[in-house]
Design a protein around this nucleic acid. Structure first.
Lengths: 189, 189
DNA sequence: CACATTAATGGCAGCCAGTGCCAGAAAGGA
DNA sequence: TCCTTTCTGGCACTGGCTGCCATTAATGTG
């Protein structure tokens, strides 16, 4: 029971993106978003801990799915393929869900304040990979190997995403493969 | 000519680190730092564009040296070795300069606000690597290969630094090598 | 020796994100 | 009807940061 909620994270997100599109991220104040939603500014901060978190939406909850994808992978799949495939599948979207996803990622990857804030979000994403790699190899999560794989996986994903923003005609999946290919070339010499 | 300056970036840095050590980064206000230096708060912001930039000190100027190291590398050195060696040399410090360097890096890598802010600084560092790789391979800086190498190099450096904070007995150089070794293992399968 | 010119200082007012506090609103249950 | 629960939103406040501008302290120049 108790007083019913007056809005939803989704509603806030939509209102916010509307304003971001019009005035940019920096040019949009929390007061303006609150007004657009028709809610008190104080309430806004109960739905999103910071302005920087709004573009990320429900990212945290999707990490469970990411973990699931990895756990569903048979252990006889080579580690690098397991991780690579999981990253690919985690970033698959319906064709009609792609344009908004791209807008969201453009905002996140090209707005300095969000670019900075993102590393705090990526940390959880990396932890999922590190935990999986540690289990597969019988290591501790903090060991150098799992940590390296997690960091490198993020590096590849970021590179692919960034290229995707400049080349919308290419598929994100293909770019992720290309980035992995570049890494193999680099290491092979 | 004109009015002489009343302080230096170095003096500010020292005062700031003194306060950070006592009250933590978040617990130290710009007003407190200004008072410690004996300077107006407004002046502080002319020396450092933001509180987050103080721990980075003169990092920007060191990038010239990084570029130099790469440019001085003979082109017949395999690309991966050239980059790896440059990263190693860029992070070499006198034995007596190491403890403060470690404190600085601990602050940067373990304080969320600084961790976030750092990506904006890393961007310049990555650009140095990307530019070098692009030249060596006759590619554009924006191409996937140079960007991937730059991102991955940063991933390795961050992994090594993070491990270094937990294992002061190990040398940073050794950890960088280990991270590279982990990457080779990972890619080799 | 005045007197410009130049360049840095620092105070002040103000913006914006974010927080603690608390009174009040709106639901369900006894 | 009253009580409990839960969410709301206003208010005051902190802290980073900026624009504006008068002031200060140097270095020329006549």
């Amino acid at each position: 029971m108790g007083r019913p909620v007056v809005t939803t994270p989704g509603e806030i997100e939509q209102a916010a993106f509307r304003l971001f599109a019009a005035a940019g991220f920096e040019g949009t104040t929390m007061a303006a978003i609150a007004a657009e939603v028709g809610v008190g500014q104080r309430t806004l901060f109960r739905y999103y801990p910071s302005k920087n978190d709004i573009p990320w939406g429900q990212f945290d909850q999707t990490l469970g799915g990411f973990r699931q994808i990895l756990d569903d992978t048979p252990d006889d799949v080579p580690l690098i393929d397991a991780v690579q495939q999981a990253v690919l599948r985690f970033n698959e979207y319906d064709p009609d869900a792609e344009p908004p996803h791209r807008d969201r990622m453009r905002l996140i990857l090209r707005t300095p304040a969000l670019q900075a804030h993102s590393v705090l979000r990526y940390a959880d994403w990396r932890a999922v990979i590190a935990a999986y790699v540690a289990r597969r190899r019988g290591l501790a999560v903090d060991d150098l190997f799992p940590q390296t794989v997690a960091q490198v996986s993020l590096a590849l994903a970021l590179t692919a995403y960034d290229a995707w923003l400049d080349h919308p005609e290419a598929s994100l999946a293909a770019l992720l493969e290309d980035a992995m290919g570049a890494l193999r070339d680099y290491v092979a010499g």
